[in-house]
Simulated scan of single mutants.
Amino acid sequence: MRYQNPQNWQAVVAGIIAAAVLLLSLSSFIIITPGQAGVMSILGKAREGVLLEGIHIKPPLISTIDIYDLTVQKFEVPAQSSTKDLQELSASFAINFRLDPTQVVNIRRTQGTLQNIVSKIIAPQTQESFKIAAAERTVEEAITQRDILKRDFDEALSSRLDKYGIIILDTSVVDLTFSAEFSKAVEEKQIAEQRAQRGVYIAQEAEQQAQAEINIAQGKAEAQRLLAETLKAQGGSLVLMKEAIEAWKLGGGQVPKVLVINGDSNSGVPFLFNLGNLEETPSL
């Protein structure tokens, strides 16, 4: 039977010990990258003090490091509520937030993972904040005053999440819907308003047309009054004769059937007779 050299055994043991020491040395350090924060737990208990970016020493084998992302996180959260006039209102909010670095240890102790933060804190608080904002106005006001609704929601949500170490950076209303009954009522109201506006337009158009006819009638009456005054005045017969000559010209310059003769200079109306009657009179 052959025996191994004791020196070989010593070399193997020394190698194992060196490897173990190397592994322990490597596991005694943790690197936190920018945008992250770490929480050290020893034997399952979270220690005070947040591990920020850089290299940190940790006890090997008995410690663990939980890493939290401090960059901006975005989640879309649905919410439902009843308005002041008891109408159902549904919304979907896109929420941008990040974790407060100084509160990461408390977050680790109370909430654990980021998924727990969203499902157990942000989602229910979003629902409650939306109820607060929607209950202060009617569904029509919620639609027409959407910016005010969002402002009230932001204030309620920020105040509720601040104590959990969650900083709200921005929110946006992705979708805002209401019941089918209210949608139908809105549509009917819009149709009625359009009809009313059309009726107002027709009434205004009729009024303008009537006023135009009144203006035309007044213009004609004024023209006739002025013409009558002109004919009554001295030289009015000349005006009438001028009108007769103009009519003669418009007729092509032919001898008219009706001849105007100023027989009596004192008469306001000239003597008129039809030349056609002369042609029909038998000769003597």
Rank of each mutant, 00 (worst) to 15 (best):
E213W: 05
K74I: 10
I17S: 12
A221K: 14
R225L: 14
K220F: 08
L86N: 13
A192L: 15
S82R: 08
I31P: 01
V258R: 02
K220T: 07
Y164T: 00
N215Q: 03
L169V: 07
R198V: 08
K150E: 13
Q36G: 06
P6W: 08
I167P: 04
G252C: 03
I168N: 05
S63P: 05
V13Q: 11
L99V: 05
N274K: 05
I31F: 11
I214G: 01
V72S: 02
I31C: 04
L226M: 02
G268K: 14
N5Q: 09
A196K: 15
E280K: 10
E205H: 07
N266E: 13
L278T: 04
T177Q: 11
K220I: 12
L51F: 12
A142C: 10
S81H: 00
S82W: 05
A206G: 00
A94N: 12
A217T: 06
V50D: 02
D100V: 07
I191E: 11
F182N: 02
A19M: 13
M40W: 01
V186K: 09
R109M: 10
R98F: 14
A135K: 05
L275V: 15
M1A: 11
R2V: 14
K45I: 12
A91D: 00
K120I: 08
K257V: 02
L250K: 12
L89E: 00
R109A: 03
S27K: 08
V13F: 05
V118K: 13
S41Q: 09
T281Y: 01
S28F: 06
A20G: 11
L238F: 13
R151F: 11
G236Q: 08
G112N: 04
S41N: 06
L89C: 03
E205L: 09
A156N: 07
P282V: 15
P6T: 01
I67F: 13
Q254D: 14
G253F: 04
I16R: 12
